[in-house]
Simulated assay, not measured.
Amino acid sequence: MVEKLQNDAVRALAGLLFDGMTIMSGGFGLCGIPENLIAAIRERGVKDLTVISNNCGVDGFGLGVLLEGGQIRKMISSYVGENKLFEKLYLSGELELEFNPQGTLAERIRAGGAGIPAFFTRTGVGTLVAEGKEVREFDGERYVMERGLTADLSIVKAWKGDAEGNLVYRKTARNFNPMMASAGKVTV
């Protein structure tokens, strides 16, 4: 039986990481990010990761350390932000980016966690966001189909947790963490 409560990020991730996996990372900007788990992933050196997160941290902190280590192949996010390396790698074609309006990203994650494979939204119709996606008309309005998102692993930051998986988040650290916790095959 796997011990569900760990006090060390490296031990908590033992046996869960592999090259090419998809990881969801909670947080918003730098608020409520699972920085200890990110450091443990950096230490492990897994690569070719697809990371689903609101953004990619900043240069030298948060998910930015995985980007600096060349571990991230693709980002699914809504904000490039202050990370100059993110911008440079994307513009040079070295980093794949699936850009989402923030509300759409949140709903894609929520849908994935709820077992909903896809949904329709008006957001993005007629823009680059809709390119290559199914568009349908409902009641005279056009909607783009968005797929729910899931991940091999969700990493989140909670204030407190128990062996049953109940988590308590504090203040603004709640942000994307609860929905990401629901959408991973495994959550740490």
Score class of each variant (00 low, 15 high):
residue 2 V to P: 11
residue 2 V to Q: 07
residue 3 E to T: 15
residue 4 K to T: 13
residue 5 L to R: 07
residue 5 L to F: 06
residue 6 Q to R: 11
residue 7 N to H: 08
residue 8 D to Q: 04
residue 9 A to I: 06
residue 10 V to R: 14
residue 11 R to L: 14
residue 11 R to C: 09
residue 12 A to I: 04
residue 13 L to T: 06
residue 16 L to I: 05
residue 16 L to N: 09
residue 18 F to E: 12
residue 19 D to M: 04
residue 21 M to V: 08
residue 21 M to L: 10
residue 22 T to F: 01
residue 22 T to H: 01
residue 23 I to A: 03
residue 25 S to T: 14
residue 27 G to C: 12
residue 28 F to W: 11
residue 28 F to M: 10
residue 28 F to H: 11
residue 29 G to S: 11
residue 31 C to M: 15
residue 34 P to F: 13
residue 35 E to Q: 14
residue 36 N to C: 13
residue 38 I to P: 01
residue 43 E to G: 12
residue 48 D to R: 15
residue 48 D to I: 06
residue 52 I to G: 02
residue 52 I to Y: 05
residue 52 I to P: 06
residue 57 G to I: 03
residue 59 D to T: 02
residue 59 D to S: 03
residue 61 F to R: 15
residue 62 G to Y: 02
residue 63 L to I: 05
residue 63 L to K: 04
residue 65 V to E: 03
residue 70 G to T: 01
residue 74 K to L: 01
residue 74 K to W: 02
residue 79 Y to R: 12
residue 79 Y to K: 12
residue 80 V to C: 08
residue 81 G to T: 08
residue 83 N to E: 07
residue 90 Y to I: 07
residue 91 L to Y: 06
residue 91 L to D: 12
residue 92 S to Y: 02
residue 92 S to L: 05
residue 92 S to N: 13
residue 93 G to T: 05
residue 94 E to M: 10
residue 94 E to R: 15
residue 95 L to D: 06
residue 95 L to T: 06
residue 97 L to H: 05
residue 97 L to N: 05
residue 100 N to P: 07
residue 100 N to R: 15
residue 103 G to L: 11
residue 112 G to F: 02
residue 112 G to A: 00
residue 112 G to N: 02
residue 113 G to T: 02
residue 114 A to K: 14
residue 117 P to V: 11
residue 118 A to R: 00
residue 121 T to D: 01
residue 121 T to C: 03
residue 121 T to A: 04
residue 123 T to F: 08
residue 124 G to D: 00
residue 126 G to L: 00
residue 126 G to A: 02
residue 126 G to W: 01
residue 129 V to Q: 09
residue 131 E to M: 09
residue 132 G to D: 00
residue 135 V to I: 05
residue 136 R to N: 10
residue 137 E to W: 03
residue 137 E to C: 11
residue 139 D to E: 15
residue 139 D to R: 10
residue 139 D to S: 14
residue 139 D to G: 12
residue 141 E to D: 13
residue 146 E to F: 00
residue 146 E to L: 03
residue 147 R to Q: 04
residue 151 A to R: 00
residue 154 S to K: 08
residue 155 I to Q: 04
residue 156 V to R: 10
residue 157 K to M: 09
residue 158 A to W: 07
residue 160 K to G: 05
residue 162 D to S: 14
residue 163 A to L: 04
residue 165 G to S: 03
residue 167 L to V: 14
residue 167 L to P: 04
residue 169 Y to H: 09
residue 170 R to H: 15
residue 171 K to T: 14
residue 173 A to T: 15
residue 174 R to C: 12
residue 175 N to M: 13
residue 178 P to S: 06
residue 178 P to I: 04
residue 180 M to W: 01
residue 184 G to M: 04
residue 185 K to S: 11
